[in-house]
């Protein structure tokens, strides 16, 4: 049976201010073994104190996001074998970036969800709307919105964004993506309010189209496209108001 070396970034701010790497030799039991399976194997067979989060194990819940070999990914959705490249291969697992570490691979996603709350992430229906109001599946509006509603709030994009690190006030990709999904939805009446929130110094204008968020999204959401869509709406509104065409 092939064995690979799993390096895990460990430590907690209270116990030990310096984080350290610990290596575990993990047998690859099956070809379909994921990074999460390896972490569970370590916890059960080597060190029960290893801390990480997980829930669904099938890529739906967005709980097990970590940094694997320098790349954000869901531990459950990343296969170990190809990463390690066979016997003796190395796989490094770190907690998500830009979020405070609680212990080992467990981070505090508070900032991430605070930013989400800032954009008022739920739909504000108009007074005339009676449930259920459905957008036709083949309408252009539905097709624009659909991919952006796939978000599972795993925080991978926030960790991958090079701007979110230095500026913790930046709304971040997930919140902006959510705002785009709602702003593009004709059933939502809080459009102006939301545009105002995101078109701020620490919102839209802080995005420099680096595309890291789009690259790591486990749901393949074109996040950068959403942010650019919001920018264009604000620019168009602004120019319209300047040339008095918006009245």
């Amino acid at each position: 049976m092939d064995t690979i070396s799993l390096s895990v970034r460990r430590g907690s701010p209270e116990q030990n201010p310096t984080a350290y790497w610990q290596e575990f030799d993990v047998p690859i039991v099956e070809d379909t073994m994921s990074v999460l399976d390896a972490l569970i194997w370590v916890q059960r067979n080597v060190d029960p104190s290893l801390a990480f989060r997980r829930a669904c194990r099938v890529g739906m819940c967005g709980t097990c996001g970590v940094v694997i070999n320098g790349r954000e990914g869901l531990a459950c959705g990343t296969l170990l074998g190809p990463l390690a490249g066979g016997e003796g291969g190395k796989v490094r697992v770190q907690p998500l970036r830009h979020l405070p570490v609680i212990r080992d691979l467990v981070t505090d996603p508070g900032v991430f969800f605070d930013h989400l709350r800032q954009v008022d992430p739920s739909l504000t229906p108009g007074p005339g709307l009676q449930e259920p109001v459905v957008l036709s599946p083949d309408s252009r509006e539905r097709q624009t919105i659909s991919p952006h509603r796939e978000c599972i709030y795993c925080g991978l994009c926030y960790s991958a964004c090079p701007v979110a690190g230095p500026d913790s006030g930046f709304l971040g990709p997930a919140a902006l993506n959510r705002a785009f999904a709602l702003v593009s939805d004709s059933r939502d009446v809080a459009r102006n309010q939301r545009l105002q929130t995101v078109a701020s110094e620490q919102g839209l204008w802080r995005c420099h189209t680096i595309f890291e968020c789009t690259a790591v999204c486990p749901k393949g959401i074109p996040i950068t496209r959403a942010i650019q869509g919001l920018k264009r709406r604000v620019v168009v509104d602004k120019l319209k108001s300047i040339f008095r065409l918006g009245r």
């Binding site: 790497w21 070999n69 680096i210």
Partner: peptide, 23 residues
């Protein structure tokens, strides 16, 4: 492992990051 730490920060970055960094 320290080399790995450095590698971890920059190896996974893609063209969009390089474009921004060089800019």
């Amino acid at each position: 492992l320290h080399a790995g730490n450095f590698q971890d920060r920059y190896s996974g970055t893609r063209s969009g990051w390089w474009a921004w960094f060089l800019q």
